[in-house]
């Protein structure tokens, strides 16, 4: 049945090749050209990459993207771990709770970002209603300064993506044999010791999976920033994806492609690490 196998997988290969592999190669190709709508297309080799390295706006968006990952991913992991531990308890309404936790993950980011935009709204948003209501001072422009905008974005992103981490870690928790816990209780270990000595070490593979997934995802963050800050104030929250998008929007395909290729290479390195880690190919094939 040698040829039959190829027949069955051909549609998938065709789709992935035509709409993922070829576009990536196209981006590599385009990145070597000066390719702006109204100008003559011209080969520039690595010129676009050199231009990026000397562009302060590029460095700013690189810096933003790295700090965004460094702050939001650990926060999501911590929150997700807490949620997973709660959901792993034998609580009433577990099913309903799990559905609540899934909701932020399932609704479109662009829509939830719109709600966050309203929450952060200056005149009548929920954030300021709470802020002034609790007597913390006058209304605050939550998206107005670079650091506030950054914090607001991280909060919105953490809300959206913690459910994913929770689900992955919950699966990891449920894979831990229960008799390990009862054995530890027989040995008079307290719950903190059980957590540090049993739960956390055995949860490490699931944590790594969640960490890599979230890192790759945060690396390409776009929707939430596009809606909430549009990269502002003053370009301070422009992620690499948004930076490249703005060039595509202006018809500068060469430079935009160079940025997206750079982003691709980093993401690809992470995903190779992930695929190796998971060891799928060996296990499944």
């Amino acid at each position: 049945m040698r040829d039959r196998g190829i027949l069955f997988i051909l549609p998938l290969l065709a789709f992935v090749a035509a709409f993922i592999i070829v576009p990536i190669c196209g981006a590599f190709w385009n990145s070597a050209f000066q390719d702006i709508g109204y100008l003559q297309t011209r080969f520039v080799g690595l010129g676009n990459y050199r231009q990026a390295l000397s562009d302060p706006a590029f460095r700013q968006s690189l810096k933003f993207t790295i700090i965004f990952i460094a702050v939001s991913v650990p926060l999501e992991l911590a929150l997700g771990l807490a949620f997973a531990l709660i959901l792993d308890l034998d609580l009433p309404f577990r099913g309903a709770l799990r559905a609540c936790v899934l909701l932020p993950w399932a609704i479109p980011t662009a829509i939830s970002a719109r709600v966050w935009e309203l929450i952060y709204g200056y005149g009548y948003g929920l954030a300021n209603a709470l802020w002034t209501g609790l007597g913390c001072g006058g209304p605050v422009n939550w998206l107005g300064t670079p650091w506030r905008a950054f914090g607001s974005l991280v909060a919105a992103e953490a809300w959206k993506t913690t459910p994913f981490v929770t689900i992955i870690l919950l699966a990891g928790l449920s894979a831990i044999p229960r008799d390990l816990y009862s054995q530890a209780k027989v040995d008079r270990a307290n719950s903190l010791q059980i957590f540090w000595r049993i739960t956390l070490p055995l949860l490490r593979p699931a944590m790594l999976v969640a960490l890599l997934f979230r890192t790759i995802d945060a690396l390409r963050v776009f929707d939430v920033i596009y809606v909430l800050t549009h990269g502002g104030p003053g370009g301070s929250t422009t992620s690499l994806s948004l930076y490249a998008y703005k060039y595509f929007l202006n018809g500068d395909f060469g430079y935009g492609s160079a940025i997206s290729v750079a982003l691709f290479l980093v993401a690809f390195a992470f995903s190779l690490a992930y695929v190796r880690l998971a060891g799928y190919c060996r296990a499944l094939a």
């Binding site: 990536i24 992470f270 995903s271």
Partner: peptide
């Protein structure tokens, strides 16, 4: 499997231009 799984993690922005 390896390449398809890796492909799922490509940033969308690197496909959109093309």
């Amino acid at each position: 499997l390896f390449f398809v799984l890796a492909a799922s993690m490509f940033p969308q922005i690197s496909l959109t231009g093309y």
